[in-house]
Design a binder for these strands. Sequence first.
DNA 1: CGAAAGCGAGAGCAGTGCTCTCGTTTCGGA
DNA 2: TCCGAAACGAGAGCACTGCTCTCGCTTTCG
Lengths: 241, 241
Amino acid sequence: MSESEPKRSAAVGVRARARAELVAEITRSARTQLAEHGAAALSLRAVSRDLGMASSAIYRYFSSRDALLTALIIESYDSLGAACEAAEALVDRGDLLGRWRAVCHAARGWARANPHEYALIYGSPVPGYAAPDDTIDPATRVPVLLLALLADVAAQREERQVEPEPVSPLLATQLQAMRHVAEVDVDDRLLLEGVGAWTLLFGLLNFELFGQFANTFDDADELFGHQVDAAGTRLGLIPTD
Amino acid sequence: MSESEPKRSAAVGVRARARAELVAEITRSARTQLAEHGAAALSLRAVSRDLGMASSAIYRYFSSRDALLTALIIESYDSLGAACEAAEALVDRGDLLGRWRAVCHAARGWARANPHEYALIYGSPVPGYAAPDDTIDPATRVPVLLLALLADVAAQREERQVEPEPVSPLLATQLQAMRHVAEVDVDDRLLLEGVGAWTLLFGLLNFELFGQFANTFDDADELFGHQVDAAGTRLGLIPTD
DNA sequence: CGAAAGCGAGAGCAGTGCTCTCGTTTCGGA
DNA sequence: TCCGAAACGAGAGCACTGCTCTCGCTTTCG
């Protein structure tokens, strides 16, 4: 536990400290490269040149290019999640539609400001790439945020009677597992509507950022706002309360 | 295959014929590589080795790796479009929900059968890559198919009065441009609903194929069917007619 | 104090996209 | 029919990549 007798009390150890700093510097340089030229152009050698060290030295800190990419993926998920959470937290808790809108527009704002990071996490995965377990937690931040919102929707309209959606055993199990992730209680119907809204949100972002809207909705501001509001209506969110 | 017609042969030219064949062989080999290892692993040198020719010779037929990729993109769009069109054509014209379902499930079937091709056209684009004009036409096959479906929806329910959706001038212009692509007449409200359905469809496919549903909807069959039917309901499609 | 582990540099390997040159083959106009 | 021009394939070469291995040096720790 405690090293209570360091002769020369060198805190955490000069080597460990240097290591942490170098890991941070490497990811910082890599993040810059990612933002400027995209994940495909991320080069370990370019990072090493940027830091003035031999390319082989990078491997003391990241076992492979994929490992570095994984670190960037985690950072990106966290960055997006933080942006959405921050925007949503600013809205009055009772304004459910406002909270939904805030999440959507924050996600879009982040994606447009960081297109390469967005493509890294929501675009085509690298062929041989298997997402390590470290990535699934940050990846769930936005879904968890939406699940909490759904729970508040369910709570707010609890007096109204909703007839249950008939779902198959498999789908029911999957929905139950989804509830378990965020520890919320939402009926099947609303949960399915939420999955649809979540999917639509990132479908819109994919189309806009990956060029599928090109030549038609080059300016997707209003289309996005309309679709988000329509999805909000489907979730039972009403303008003011 | 008789070469006893010197005039015809001369007209086509042995060299032009060889060229066309080689272009076809190169794309065939490249398509195999793409299907097996993904776009990132597509190597001009590997293609040249596969065909038993020097790597530099490839450049007589494709000016760059990107040019080859563009050919594969066009092929993929056409393949997906053809699959959807074929499936949709099998359904009775009056069964609008059936046609919508057919398109969606055909798209999903194609995407799952050709995941790398799907990632190539609906995943993150190559950073410096600008889609040539040749690609936009094949890319519109599925949207055009859906627009035709929407037009039939509008025609079938023409008696029912729909109050117009208030849209801004910009959005109205964009929707008008969209109508122009497929030469159909669909009111703003239905058109917006159609864009949402189209976006949701590929949002679902992206999530499923790119791993966002992992650990939750590993088997997305029923979720997909449910979301597709829900979108169909929103479009005003009813089970049977 | 001395062995062990961590570290950085450099050389090297196999692979990539792409360019250039150099003979050869084919085409098309005179 | 002939001959210059264009198309072509092969090979060498350049600059770059991820990654491995070895070799000294330094920090750590028993």
